[in-house]
Design a protein around this nucleic acid. Structure first.
Length: 447
RNA sequence: UCCUCGGUAGCUCAAUGGCAGAGCGGGCGGCUGUUAACCGCUAGGUUGUAGGUUCAAAUCCUACCCGAGGAGCCA
């Protein structure tokens, strides 16, 4: 039987007869010569048919194929530098064709640029286009690399609850759902507090799953449902946390570079920038970042840029500030020691400087900005209780969390990495809605 | 919630007060190396909705609906 192959492995079958199963992505008919660009889920490959080389019925079948028709193609693999595809450079000289279905001729996604609204309304079909296919293949590899690094470095996967009793951080808006006789429950915005419980049983843990924010954010960096990996580590301070993060992120990038070159090439990603991603990453304090922003603002001649970079000590950075900062570095940059007032209640105050805390964000280069937020957590029960009271959080709801600090408390730290933002940076694309199969935004839950 | 921009053929867009248009996609025909092929023909319209001004509205005015980008907030 002729072997059924995956297009991603086509180079292994040069000059051999093979079969592929897939869908017609594009056709070019030139009378007695027909080119089909066929995708099989693993790649895109050009298939060629000459009328005189084939039985009349077979050639007629090839001519009447519409875009997205499902087929099995038999043919001989040839190396040919003219051939488009992912990976390109190979084509299949068709010797046989089996048609599963001639697709309806009103396929809405013509091969051209589309507006955002149309593309998102047709997300179920948009996924078939090379750019989206490449991005989501890279996303899958990012997730593989994440689990691989954590699993081989002593982290235990702990699945934290999606349905939770109350706001973990008390700030952002949560999705509410009715919950039997308990009244309301909420969709999780983080698994961190549960992982702080888990480390006292397993030392190093991580959760990886969807999180939900009901904020009305309308930017290229926000989704209402997004995926986050959250490692949490016992006996770990802020400096050790940064070492973990830089190794972790470097592994993810290097793994994508190793396994997803054709996809990166099809996205026209400049991989020389990604190749530089290895430890150590630069570290600057929040204070230094504020000074740097002031200097950049001083140096710019663009009045609009000047306005955007205006900043005062004590605020959190906005998108323009993050973009300006990251453009000063080739690698991701750590910014540590944020003002306590703008960060969550559970972060350890800086020794001798309680107005700042032992928090650290990791900002991706090329203007992409924050992909990780992390911190050393408060380990003292008294200090933690005081912070809960200062934030006017319901003390009763945090009884179990406070108890963790009474029975064997240790310094511990953790962080959350946003999957979509990371994929967006690695792929070099503009908007994170393309980095998840079916994005959920403030005014979109279809399809 | 606020600010800015937009909504015309299946899609991407033109038409700025005077006949509703083009390219792509669809259909028909042609072509032996196409790269979102090309060439000829063809079908395809309640110009987001409602009201108003005008001899005449896609175009000007009012209200509303929908979307995008940004702010705030965050990963």
């Amino acid at each position: 039987m002729t072997p059924l192959i995956r297009v991603e492995n086509i180079a292994d079958y040069t000059e051999q007869e093979i079969r592929i199963r897939g869908w017609v992505y594009n056709r070019t008919r030139k009378g007695k010569l027909v080119f089909l660009l066929v995708r099989d889920g693993y790649g895109f490959v050009q298939c060629v048919a000459f009328k005189n080389d084939l039985p009349a019925e077979t050639f007629e079948d090839i001519v009447r194929l519409t875009q997205e028709s499902s087929v099995e193609i038999t043919g001989i693999v040839r190396a040919d530098s003219r051939s488009p595809g992912i990976p390109g450079g190979f084509e299949i000289g068709i010797t046989g064709l089996k048609i599963y279905q001639i697709a309806a001729d009103d396929y809405p996604m013509a091969l051209k640029e589309h507006g955002v609204d149309f593309a998102l309304d047709n997300r179920h079909l948009w996924l078939r286009m090379p750019s989206q296919w490449a991005i989501l293949r890279i996303r899958a590899t990012v997730l593989t690399a994440i689990r691989e690094w954590l699993d081989t470095n002593g982290y235990i996967n702990m699945d934290t609850p999606i349905i939770t009793p109350a706001a973990a951080e008390g700030t952002t808006t949560l999705f509410e759902t009715p919950y039997f006789d308990e009244g309301a429950a909420y969709l999780a915005q983080t698994g961190q507090l549960y992982n702080e419980a888990n480390i006292f049983a397993f030392s190093k843990v991580y959760c990886l799953g969807p999180t939900f924010r009901a904020e009305k954010s309308k930017t290229r960096r926000h989704l209402t449902e997004f995926w986050m990996v959250e490692p949490e580590v016992a006996f770990c301070d802020l400096d050790e946390l940064m070492e973990i993060e830089e190794q972790f992120v470097s592994h993810i990038v290097q793994r994508v570079l190793r396994d997803r070159q054709p996809e990166l090439a099809s996205l026209e990603r400049d991989t020389t920038l990604l190749e530089k991603i290895s430890p150590p990453f630069p570290r600057i304090s929040y204070d230094e970042a504020v000074e740097m922003l002031a200097r950049l603002r001083e140096e710019t001649d663009d009045p609009e840029e000047k306005e955007l970079l205006a900043f005062e000590w004590g605020s959190d950075f906005g998108a323009p500030h993050e973009a300006a900062l990251t453009k000063q570095f080739e690698k991701p940059v750590f910014v540590y020691g944020y003002p306590t007032a703008v960060k969550a209640f559970y972060m350890e105050p800086w020794p001798g400087r309680p107005e700042v805390c032992k928090s650290v964000d990791l900002l991706a280069p090329e203007g992409y900005g924050e992909i990780i937020g992390g911190s050393e957590r408060i380990s003292s029960p008294e200090k933690l209780l005081q912070r809960i009271q200062e934030h006017q959080l319901p003390e009763a709801a945090y009884q179990w969390y406070l108890e963790l600090r009474r029975f064997g408390s240790v310094p511990h730290s953790g962080f959350g990495l946003g999957i979509e933002r990371t994929v967006s940076w690695i792929c070099g694309i503009h908007h994170i809605r393309e980095t998840i199969p079916f994005p959920r935004t403030i005014n979109r839950v279809y399809p």
